[in-house]
Design a protein around this nucleic acid. Sequence first.
DNA 1: TGTAGTTGAGAATTCGTATTCTTGTGTTAT
DNA 2: ATAACACAAGAATACGAATTCTCAACTACA
Lengths: 340, 340
Amino acid sequence: MRVTQRDIARLAKVSQATVSRVLSGDARVEPEIRDRVLRIMGEKNYKPDVRAQALRSKKVGMIGLVIKRPQGGISNDPFFANLISSIVDELSGSDFHLCVDSAMSDFSHESIYDEMLRTRRVDGLILVESEASDDRIIRLQRDRFPFVLIGNPLHAGEVHSVDNDNVLASETVTRHLVDQGYTRIAFLGAKAGITVSDDRIAGYQRALRGTQIDHLVYHANFGSENARCAGHEFLSQEDRPDAVVVLDDFMALGVSIAAREKGLSIPNDLGLASFNDTSLCEAVGGGLTSVNLNIPALVKQTVERLINIIDEEEIPVNRRLIIPAKLSIRRSTMREGVMR
Amino acid sequence: MRVTQRDIARLAKVSQATVSRVLSGDARVEPEIRDRVLRIMGEKNYKPDVRAQALRSKKVGMIGLVIKRPQGGISNDPFFANLISSIVDELSGSDFHLCVDSAMSDFSHESIYDEMLRTRRVDGLILVESEASDDRIIRLQRDRFPFVLIGNPLHAGEVHSVDNDNVLASETVTRHLVDQGYTRIAFLGAKAGITVSDDRIAGYQRALRGTQIDHLVYHANFGSENARCAGHEFLSQEDRPDAVVVLDDFMALGVSIAAREKGLSIPNDLGLASFNDTSLCEAVGGGLTSVNLNIPALVKQTVERLINIIDEEEIPVNRRLIIPAKLSIRRSTMREGVMR
DNA sequence: TGTAGTTGAGAATTCGTATTCTTGTGTTAT
DNA sequence: ATAACACAAGAATACGAATTCTCAACTACA
């Protein structure tokens, strides 16, 4: 059977209220009594029941992460692995835990919303934006439910969000390629409508604006295999690009394979850079230049802010927070005979 | 403010108990009243408070996953991404949710145990075994707390566990290499003491037992870079192996890079096979043969069993459940001129 | 010495739901 | 017709911890 405060109280010959006071560190309890209670709590290995605490104090000590899975799961997305483990790490200091749920395409939007909010299973939510899913956000705002968005909130006004500046990051990589002397730089993105992809294309274009370099934007579906196919196509062209910025590491891997299959050497025949700085980057072709989004830092800010909102401490005025990304330069963009 | 059963009761002019009965589908409530209550619940958008339900009914609707992170997080381990997303997917049908926590090396064993069990934050646990961490298990058993282990329970007796037969799987891949005509087959594993690695080495050895082929076991730390270094070493030997079974895809990637750097072509000069069948496999060198552990199936069994234990339904007698792995054969082991 | 003020701690209540206990009404059997 | 009984639904209680209310004992000050 479970040990309750009442049990402790009986054994320590005090009231249950006193046990509760000891637990909450109430100052006005005689040291002698406090020690006795603490001793017995130790002996009996007592821990308060979070369920009762939650009911009484209106806080469950849980934050929720709702991941939107496209069709067959998010199994292979290293981004989520990164995200989840970062959140868990970040939370391990606080008194919050992480509840992970998934929302399918559309139908279960409502149901996951119900489950997580109206039932008070979590105190707050972390949303991860991939497309523009505004109905959720609007509902959350209406109910004044604490949440922080990772990603670009688009036109949604008063939303707390944390994100990278994808435009700037993409501009930076692209500039890097320009600096390395590449003259025909392409961008391989996902199909239009995916916010990250669109933003990064915008950054790529911004970087090239002052230059003579043509804007070459290609599109492919996610995954290395799709990217490999796309790579084969654009690398077969007469005036093929001599460098490519790719939407993510997996796709870049695909491109690198396509390049190898076409007999193009990286970085001399083809410069290659991408985003996410996965562990893959260490391996691909002796090193793949990639933008490190600094997910741990991003998560740290997200979690801190969310907890602040939940605890109703002063919420920073700046509702949108940008985490700077940094470039991890590796061999795939270090053309021979070029010095910074 | 929150809508409670009492509010619904007042509006429907019934007692709170009746509302509760309607909710639990109690048969002996007049259809007319039931409909009225349901209508008002709908209007008011009522959902029961899980905190109160949990307190009352001794079930929180949560299962916990404690991941043991070696030092700096599990960020890059695709296995966990897979695991977590599979669990979430599997759970999305049930009325359970997933709570993910991490346990550091040793210290926080106790603390995570406290948090998750004594506080009744979760109804049951999924443990993932990488080494032999028996103290946790023993404590859980003593408290008769519902849990299922993913991995090999070693000598721990009465534990519910779900796992692949790593020995058999490894035997199968190795056999496959033999069948392909490779004659000098090595195994690259992690350092001794890691259960998966040891088991797979055992399977490798079992496969070679009837043959003339030497047993060549190498060890390296996890990660593609470490494997690449190790690969360089053993591929430089006079009598280098002509095929390698590698502990996981990431390490295999490292080996493949080492091979390329040494001018060895895969699969003709070097056969390569590994475990996990990550999305990487599609990409590496035009296809990497890998053992598919069927994590979704493994998770399905794990979750089903755990929920059975929690609900105290009849628990299958067979405490240890083996999920068959299957081999995904790709280019890296398809030597030219060899037919099955 | 008497009254006001302080303080430590027990009693009682609350959180929202599930469940048991109880009662009033209607049905069946003798 | 009345005792025995089924049954729907309200009243009351429990779950475990936090908090408010209350009171007794003790200090302080005139």
